[in-house]
């Protein structure tokens, strides 16, 4: 095997896309959201996971887009798909029925258990600001065997407690009582898995046996301490394995010349 030819020049978003693509295992059935997740699955399909397939929640199953879609409902998602159906098929026919191995999602805020907020800032009953809302994020996150979140690293986004739990992490309230329990307890025999990694512009995080986030690798140019400073909660950096593998020259070329050849998400 020849040594990998690592890229010297790349942007933060490039590394995010490449690191996310590496989470895809060959043969995975992947649910992807709009944006970087689309780059990640498309890159994985032409590098490390040629047999992975992609489902978009608007209803295209195993599409083979010729042109990169700009959203999950885009006409481009349906090109050469095995089935072009709707949300009932995507959420119930594919997700609830247990086909989905991996999902790529995003969020505005996350806590140490991986609970994610994409709904409001402040008290929901009298919010200071509204984000887009849940979309399919909590559905996909609740039933995929592994989920990977792609997020921006900022202290105010990596919080002790999120303002609103839009999407379920590893320790969540069981309603109607609100008692905090493990995801396994809340989901009973419906439990399939859950958060596997969080990838930011600074680092890759994973979750320990108790469902608590820890630092797995830091991206080139950052230190574990810097990452810790950018978390409001007390981040465990003792398990850090070192530096995140850099993108290769080939991966960067594929991203800019094949996957996003029009410069939609990577200007």
């Amino acid at each position: 095997m020849t040594a990998k030819n690592y890229a010297e020049n790349y942007k933060g978003a490039d590394l995010l896309a490449v690191a996310a693509a590496r989470e895809v295992q060959d043969g995975d059935i992947v649910f992807a959201g709009t944006g970087l997740p689309m780059l990640a699955i498309a890159l994985a399909q032409i590098t490390n996971a040629p047999n992975a397939v992609c489902i978009y929640e608007a209803g295209s199953i195993d599409g083979r887009p010729k042109d990169l879609p700009a959203s999950v409902g885009d006409a481009r998602c349906a090109t050469q798909s095995s089935v072009a159906a709707g949300l009932t098929e995507a959420f119930y026919g594919q997700l609830h029925s247990g086909y989905v191995d991996l999902a790529f999602l995003g969020g505005a805020e996350i806590d140490k258990y991986g609970n994610v907020n994409t709904t409001v800032v402040g008290d929901y009953a009298a919010p200071k600001k509204r984000f887009t809302g849940s979309g399919g994020n909590p559905d996909i996150n609740s039933f995929a065997r592994r989920t990977v979140f792609i997020m921006v690293q900022e202290k105010r986004r990596f919080k002790e407690h999120v303002d609103y739990i839009t999407s379920p992490g590893w320790r969540i309230p069981e309603w109607p009582s609100g008692e905090m329990k493990s995801k396994k307890e809340v989901y009973g025999k419906f439990f399939n898995g859950g958060l596997s990694a969080v990838i930011t512009n600074m680092a890759v995080f994973r979750f320990d046996e108790d469902g608590i986030m820890y630092l797995d690798t830091v991206h080139p140019g950052f230190t574990p301490e810097q990452v810790k400073e950018n978390c409001e909660f007390d981040l465990n950096i003792s398990r850090c394995r070192g530096v995140t593998e850099r993108p290769t020259v080939e991966e960067i070329e594929l991203l800019y010349k094949v996957v996003d050849k029009d410069g939609i998400f990577l200007p």
Partner: peptide
């Protein structure tokens, strides 16, 4: 919508449990 479409009063789902969507305060 599925319940509405098929003339059922409700439709079961196990998706998105453990979220604040289900918080009775909200």
């Amino acid at each position: 919508l599925l319940a509405g479409a098929y003339g059922l009063p409700f439709f079961p789902t196990a998706l998105s449990m453990g979220t604040d969507i289900l918080n009775p305060k909200f």
